[in-house]
Nucleic acid binder design. Structure first.
Lengths: 102, 102
DNA sequence: TATAGTAAGTTACGTAAAGTAACCAGTTAT
DNA sequence: ATAACTGGTTACTTTACGTAACTTACTATA
């Protein structure tokens, strides 16, 4: 569909990314420092298939960087960029809203 | 699936709601005051089917109230509760992040 | 030599959610 | 009688998500 939101393209674009399932939780994990694929996977009920897909999206959007260490077995670490870390107040805002209004 | 997120149930619960498609945009619309069904529908490319579904969810979660005016044709107005309005800083945070990091 | 183990994925397939379009009820205006 | 309006609902298609098995590359164990 090519129809464009009359309203607030900024919010709309951001939600296309952040609103996808698991995305906010992945960013939340990475706010505490870089993590390996399996660490993220076992911290939440996400499948490898979708985690891989989400991390690629986040990398493409410039929120996450991927670093490969050629050890045995291979180690891959994901971490937030400045753009990703800039979401900290948003994530924390959602958390505190949730806490206050449950 | 019954598996529980080890991490941050607050963020997880909030994102189950706010992360659904269109939900944040609907709340954004209502931050400027109450709106009719058709007003919301025509402000973004959402279908009646899904708008109806989302508004019911938001009403059930206590973020939105629904008021019927028995005029001709009928008028139905949706507005935010305090719980809904409390999301203003979150929505504005996402907007400004989006503006800054595009 | 074969077997198994590990990390980080990918592939194939089934189900659930979202998108699209047509339709409906109640009332009024033409 | 016909059309028009709002606020939906129904039926159907397409896309996203969930599950489980498999893959690659290397190592350690029997």
């Amino acid at each position: 569909m090519m129809k464009e939101t009359a309203l607030c393209p900024r919010l709309s674009n951001a939600m296309d990314l952040l609103g996808k399932r698991w995305t906010a939780l992945i960013i939340y994990q990475l706010l505490n420092g870089s993590k390996r694929f399996n660490e993220i996977e076992s911290s939440m009920p996400i499948s490898g298939r979708l985690l891989s897909e989400r991390l690629k999206e986040l990398e493409m959007e410039g929120l996450v960087t991927r670093k490969i260490y050629s050890e045995v077995p291979v180690r891959v670490e994901y971490s937030l960029t400045d753009k990703g870390f800039a979401l900290r107040p948003v994530i924390e805002g959602i958390e505190s809203w949730s806490q206050q209004w449950t």
